[in-house]
Amino acid sequence: MNALVELVLVLVVLGFAVKLLLLNFWRAVLFFSPSSVRVRPEAPAEQMDLPAELAPLAGQLRALGFVPLGRHVEKPRFHRGTRSYDFAHAGERTFATLHFASEGLPRLYLLTPLAPEGFVLTAGYKRPGFELPGRYRSGGFPDASPERLLQAHLERLQGLTPAEHFTWDARLQAGQAWYRGAGQREIRRQNLPGVLWTFVALAIVASLFLGGGRSA
């Protein structure tokens, strides 16, 4: 009976460790290799199939002068990826992207590539501020309307030189460049907990097997 109880406990702990790995291993890979994320086009503007939950934000963007570009997916290794819906306002030199958070909530962020390199990123949700003078600015304005978010974004662009092209190809290139350069520090900061939980899960698995070996 004691052996059966011990076996059940081992299986429960092992299951917990496996679940931790499934939830966090891809984040650990992302931490160590941000440039491994692939930004891939999925559909042009006329085939975007915008979800109903994003329609109100999309309507507000169109009212501000943004035009739809297309849908893309940002796919880390060992993860299904995040589907994103892109818009652009060439006059304001700004891309807008809609997507869903992990909790299923609609999210919006604005992105302007800089010349010769760099980005300004302004999110309509909580996002820690970060700046590299002349090259990179990011931050969040939780619950700001698209109009207010655009105003804040344009204010944060002052003194910087936006890139020239605001096509869908340029948006896809900017996304890939963010993962390969300016965004890597933020990615590592966001995914550090995933690394820690991955090591915890591996330690649990190792202790189970090593412990079993010593018992034998």
Rank of each mutant, 00 (worst) to 15 (best):
L196Q: 05
Y125D: 04
E46W: 00
G181H: 01
E147Y: 12
Y136D: 09
R156K: 15
E53H: 02
A203P: 12
H99T: 08
R189S: 07
R171D: 01
L157Y: 00
P76D: 08
A182I: 00
V29K: 09
F32V: 10
N2P: 05
V200R: 13
P142R: 01
G194P: 10
G139W: 03
G65T: 07
A55M: 10
F25A: 15
S33L: 15
D86V: 02
A182H: 01
L110G: 04
R71M: 06
Y179E: 00
A58Q: 08
R80D: 05
R107T: 12
R135I: 09
G183Y: 02
L22W: 11
A52R: 14
G91L: 02
P34E: 06
A28M: 09
R77P: 00
L105F: 12
A101D: 11
R77S: 02
G70D: 12
W178F: 14
L192S: 03
S102G: 09
P128C: 08
Q60D: 05
P128L: 15
E92M: 03
G65I: 07
F199Q: 14
P128T: 11
G183C: 03
L22K: 13
G65P: 10
F209Y: 11
L14C: 12
L208D: 08
L61S: 04
A63K: 03
T94Q: 13
A152F: 00
H72N: 05
L20M: 15
S145Y: 01
T112V: 11
S215C: 00
L150W: 07
E131K: 13
P193Y: 04
A58C: 13
L14A: 10
G159I: 08
P51I: 15
A201L: 07
A52E: 15
L132G: 00
A152M: 04
G118A: 01
G118H: 05
P193M: 06
R180D: 12
L110R: 06
P41G: 03
R137F: 14
P146A: 04
P162A: 02
V39I: 14
P76A: 12
R188N: 07
A144V: 10
A203M: 15
F32G: 13
A63T: 12
L22Q: 12
T122I: 05
H99E: 07
F141D: 02
G59W: 05
F66K: 03
R77N: 03
G181R: 07
L154W: 01
V10N: 00
G124E: 06
R171A: 03
V18C: 14
W197Q: 05
A45Q: 04
A58M: 00
A203K: 07
E46Y: 03
Q190E: 04
L21H: 03
G118P: 02
V37G: 02
G213E: 09
L114Q: 01
A90I: 07
G183Q: 02
N2G: 08
H153K: 00
S33R: 15
R62N: 06
V195P: 00
R83G: 10
F25M: 14
A88M: 09
A163C: 05
A216P: 09
R214W: 14
P142G: 06
A101S: 15
E117H: 04
G134D: 13
P106K: 07
F130M: 12
G104M: 08
F199W: 13
H89Q: 09
F95M: 02
F16R: 13
A182P: 00
L108I: 11
S84A: 04
V67C: 11
Q158I: 07
L149A: 13
H165F: 06
F25D: 15
F209C: 05
